[in-house]
Every structure is written in structure tokens, then in C-alpha cells.
Amino acid sequence: MNEILRKRVLAEGVVEFDIDAPLVARKRKAGQFIVLRINEQGERIPLTIADAWPRKGIIRIVFQVVGKTTEHLATLGEGDSLQDVVGPLGKPTHIERFGTVVCIGGGIGIAPIYPIAKALKGARNGVISIIGARTKELLIMEKEMARTSHQLLISTDDGSYGHHGFVTDVLKNLIDSGTSIDQVFAVGPVIMMKMICKLTRTHDLPTIVSLNPIMVDATGMCGACRVEVGGETKFACVDGPEFDGHRVNFDGLIKRQRMYLDQEKVSWEAYHKGKQEEHSRLGE
């Protein structure tokens, strides 16, 4: 169980795993995620189910190396197994025939927006997707996104590919050009989602965002993942992770995501020190 069947490096520091998880593959819907633990000492971390093949019993995750756990995860390879995989967690995306939808994915946010776009296309929406990255080399899943969108727009912060600028700029151009839009979905760095919502609010465009607060159990038992939506406290793991972006307190989320910065550094350093020692031992 939980064996990594296939590994691909999509960009520097971005890795895709296909994992053997038959029950999860059968049940999961767009917008849902898993929690995994690498080993007995490991932290529980949430990752979106980017795709699934129910008949083969496979789920796909795409993750970016940002700290100790994701870095360790990236060192695993085909044939390795994860200690724990729990899911599918969170509420599925509300899918209906909205009309024209815009799906926006920024950076690693492209991985979670992909299943949403795919489900929306399946529900016969007109799908316009906007994906962006810092630079061309970091842009992931372009082919998949092209396949699942009627129109795919691309931006890079440094102009190395597609539009020079942010995904917000592309969305703004789209709105200004008079495209009629019925619904927006946006997943990416919190600051990106905040800027998108600022823009769509002025145009009265309903916008769903997927939030990524720090989680522990992800079953509604601890409240670590609480976020403020419309002045109320919600548990993102069970009430979300998707919410009405116009009601989310993004600044609060940004602060809560930074709660363990010091210890994350300690953890990362300890991991590297351990690896170095291992290296020098093997070198002797």
C-alpha cells in the first residue's frame, strides 16, 4: 500500500508522484486532498489529489519542495512506500454548469487547479485557464492544462514565457476585453489569491479560492486549520478547503501560515546536518 509507482520531476523542486491508493482513487473528487506521513517521525502534511485513475487504483500528487518534509519526500523514488496516506479529505469542489469559468493557478497552485478545471470542463463549462510561474522553467503541467481548457493563457513574472507579469494582469486584460465570465476559481500563493479577489470583487465576479493553512489531523478534530471567512471561524479541512474568496481574511491566513517559521528552520537544518553526516560516513 501507498507505494510510489511513478516519479517525475516537473521542474526544479517540483515533483510528481503516482501512488498506489485504490480506495482513495475510487472515492476522491475534484478539490479534495490527502494527508501523508513519510515515516514514524514524520509530520502529517496535506497535498491536493491532482489526478486519479480509479480503475488502476492510482492517485497523483504534485508537490513543491519548501521545507523538511517536502524535501525528504522528493528524495523518495519509485518502489518506496509512504507510511500513511489518508483521504480523500475536505469538501469536493462545487461543480455545476456555470457557463464560462476562469481557472487560475499560480506556481504550485496549478496542481490543485487542474482537477477543478477538468471537472468543470466535464460539466460542460467553457473553461478559460490562466497559469503562471516566476519563470518559464518553473511552469508546470502546461500540457494537461491545455487539454482541459478551451483557452489557456500563460504568464511569467520575468517575461521568459507568455505574458510578462502576473496572472492578475492576465485576468484584468480578460475582463477589460469584455469577456463574459460567470465564475472564477483561483489557487496559488495566498497573496495571489488575495489580489485576484480584490480584482474580481470590483467586477462582481464570484470567486472560489482553495486555502492552505497549517493542518494536523485534517478531520476537524484540532482546529489548527482555522481561517476567518465572513467574520466567522471555519476549519479549512472540513468546512473547506474552498471558500468564497470575497469573504476570506487573507491577512490572517498569511500570519497563521508563518506560525512555525523558526522551528521549520531548525527542522530543515537538522535534516541537512543529518544528511551531511551520512554522506561523510559513506565517503569514508
Binding site: 514524520g42 522551528q263 521549520e264
Partner: peptide
């Protein structure tokens, strides 16, 4: 459950 009292030997802070 996560043994944070043994951090950083255990990963959870």
C-alpha cells in the same frame, strides 16, 4: 500523537 516534545527528532513542531 505527533511527539512534538521530541522535536526536531520528530518533525511536528
Amino acid at each position: 500523537l505527533m511527539k512534538a516534545y521530541l522535536f526536531p527528532q520528530y518533525d511536528t513542531p
